[in-house]
């Protein structure tokens, strides 16, 4: 659609740019696992099973939400291209924008399939002011920027306290296919609850205790994800019948 590259956002240059949000056309949304930030943790854990995973490039631990069960399977994208839950993880929702490292400049990826000049959300009003869509986007970008460091230190603190452990999940689906999920890590509940009062108080002061329990409890959302997959399979079976 657009062949342009990454450009610094300007109200003159990009006056007529529209963003057509369609998750079916967003390549980075076609994933079964998405990195999430501590600044969105409540919304994330209320919607998705959340784990720690290892970055395949660096081996470092990341906080991530599970969106599906196989490579590139995102169960939250509907057939009409909308998102099936109330919270879209920030790293996907911010498309096609990002902030410069010093947070002073906004950049737009003109090559992103959502960018066009006809349909969708406008960025600027006729007199060159940000539209509410864009105000919301800027707030999101700031949450991401401030959340990156915070998320790293959340993960590091968990690791330093030995509170991370690998989990192996055996899931059974309606079509009787069962699946074993590998490469996921969770909070070690036993270790967490056996920490000393001082350690617990310290983690609580840092706001990490609350986050750790959110991640732990999000495991319950695994049932919803299996349920969703089964439901989609059933629909698919009906359509093809």
């Amino acid at each position: 659609m657009n062949s342009g590259g990454i450009e610094r956002l300007s109200k003159t240059e990009h006056r007529n740019v529209h963003i057509n949000v369609d998750y079916l056309k967003q390549p980075e949304a076609a994933t079964h696992v998405v990195p999430v930030l501590i600044s969105e943790l409540l919304s994330v854990t209320a919607n998705y099973p959340t784990f720690l995973i290892k970055d395949s490039e660096t081996g470092e631990f990341l906080l991530a939400a599970l969106l599906g069960f196989t490579e590139n399977e995102n169960l939250f994208i509907s057939q009409d291209g909308s998102w099936r839950s109330t919270h879209v993880p920030l790293t996907i929702a911010r498309k096609p924008f990002h902030l410069s490292q010093d947070c002073l400049d906004v950049y737009i990826d003109m090559g992103n399939p959502w960018v066009n000049f006809e349909s969708g959300q406008r960025l600027f009003s006729d007199n060159g002011e940000y539209m509410p869509f864009m105000d919301n986007m800027l707030a999101m970008l700031e949450r991401i920027t401030s959340g990156v460091g915070e998320t790293k230190s959340f993960v590091k603190t968990l690791l330093d306290h030995g509170l991370v452990k690998p989990v192996s999940l055996d899931l059974t689906f309606e079509d009787t296919k069962s699946r074993n999920l590998q490469g996921l890590y969770n909070i070690d509940h036993e270790k967490l609850t056996s920490l000393s009062h001082e350690d617990l108080a310290g983690l609580h002061r840092l706001g990490i205790l609350e986050g750790a329990f959110m991640v732990l409890h999000s495991l319950e959302k695994m049932k919803s994800l299996v349920f969703l997959k089964d439901k989609l399979n059933r629909n698919f079976a009906e359509v093809t019948r």
Partner: peptide, 11 residues
């Protein structure tokens, strides 16, 4: 190079 840059995890 990656080990020098990012390190390896103990688990």
């Amino acid at each position: 190079q990656k080990i020098n840059r990012y390190g390896m995890s103990a688990l």
